[in-house]
């Protein structure tokens, strides 16, 4: 290996690592706020990428029907709850978000011809379809079990993952897709050529991280999420709705997931089930951060990206084995530093 290859691999590693870092942040966030180990995180990556690819191929993405269907389901559940609790005031909001919004999205897509729109508009349309699925899935799958144990929530997460992968296959088929790069060209830094998509990935990830940091530090909703993560009961006593916190954290997770998918779609071919492995690599990063520290999780994810890039050079067949074995030293370290009997919830 010479310097040239090392730089190239390093660039690859950092690009993928940035994506894993975004995902690991979302995983830590969702776990802290809702105690859900969010296995389906990766499915949002695949949905985001494949929805964009469908638009570009001039096809109607199946995620549109999913949004409409899930919206109807949420509306039914919420309307029943609202009528039973005699909270008529909530009805317009429920109808608005769960029935009107998907209908508008569908109308927009039928009215425009997405294949001929500029890339930015296509990306926006993809996000419009995929991102609301996050809070809707929270409403249907997790909210009724919000007080259940981590174990039960994890099994539900696995159930959601299974259903979403199966639906992904139904919507997008077994063939993978790749989207064109956001912009052509590359940047030369001495002997290193950095291609444009890498810059897009790094720049967007960095922007997103800065926005998230601002959101958590400075806005009332961000602070509400942090409060819920620290102490659910305490936050509720202070008037923070845990339902709102749950939906908001899922919204951020689906946004981060779908956006990551859109970012990597030009770099790698995305299949309906690709998201799972990508999401799990985010998990490895999150575990490095012990599922609680954001900066450590992001660093861990970068490490995963680099390790993956370099092992694909030396032992490409064993790339996944090496990446997933990374958690063993982390677990050793964690188990040597923790020593107390904990009560499982």
């Amino acid at each position: 290996m010479d310097l040239q290859i090392a730089l190239l691999l390093g660039q690859d590693g950092i690009t993928n690592g940035a994506i894993y870092a975004l995902l690991s942040l979302a995983l830590v966030l969702v776990f802290a706020v809702t105690r859900v180990i969010f296995i389906p995180q990766g499915e949002f990556v695949a949905y985001g990428a494949l929805t964009l690819a469908s638009f570009q191929a001039g096809k109607l993405p199946g995620t549109l029907w999913l949004l409409v269907g899930v919206g109807i389901a949420v509306a039914m559940v919420d309307l029943m709850a609202a009528v039973r609790a005699r909270q008529r005031r909530r009805i317009p909001r429920i109808i608005g978000w769960n029935l009107v919004y998907p209908a508008l999205a569908a109308g927009l897509i039928f009215a425009l011809n997405p294949a001929e729109l500029p890339l930015l508009a296509q990306i926006l349309l993809s996000l419009i379809l995929v991102v609301p699925l996050g809070p809707m899935i929270y409403r249907l799958a997790f909210q009724p079990l919000a007080e259940a144990s981590v174990l039960v929530l994890l099994i539900v997460a696995v159930g959601v993952h299974f259903a979403m992968v199966g639906l992904g296959l139904l919507f997008f088929g077994a063939e993978g897709s790749r989207t064109p790069a956001f912009s052509d060209g590359s940047l030369s830094l001495g002997s290193l050529t950095v291609n444009a998509q890498t810059l897009w990935v790094l720049g967007s990830s960095l922007c997103l991280i800065v926005v998230l940091a601002y959101f958590f530090e400075r806005t009332i909703y961000g602070k509400a999420l942090r409060a819920t993560a620290m102490n659910r009961t305490g936050a509720r006593l202070m008037g923070i709705s845990t339902v709102m916190a749950g939906k908001l954290s899922f919204l951020l997770a689906s946004l981060i997931g779908a956006f990551s998918g859109i970012l990597i779609a030009p770099i790698t071919t995305v299949y309906y089930d690709t998201g799972f492995l990508i999401g799990l690599k985010g998990f490895v990063g999150a575990i490095v951060g012990a599922l609680s520290s954001y900066p450590l999780a992001a660093l861990g994810a970068l490490l995963v990206g680099l390790l993956e890039a370099f092992s694909s050079f030396w032992a490409s067949a064993f790339k996944e084995v090496i990446v997933f074995t990374l958690i063993i030293p982390v677990l050793v370290w964690l188990s040597l530093t923790t020593h107390h009997v904990e009560e499982e919830e």
């Binding site: 249907l140 799958a141 079990l145 259940a148 039960v152 099994i155 539900v156 696995v158 159930g159 959601v160 993952h161 299974f162 259903a163 979403m164 992968v165 199966g166 639906l167 296959l169 139904l170 077994a174």
Partner: peptide
């Protein structure tokens, strides 16, 4: 395709 995954996933959520 393995569409039974969809049913199994939904079934699990329902059971729990």
């Amino acid at each position: 395709g393995n569409f039974e995954m969809i049913v199994f996933g939904l079934l699990m959520i329902f059971v729990l």
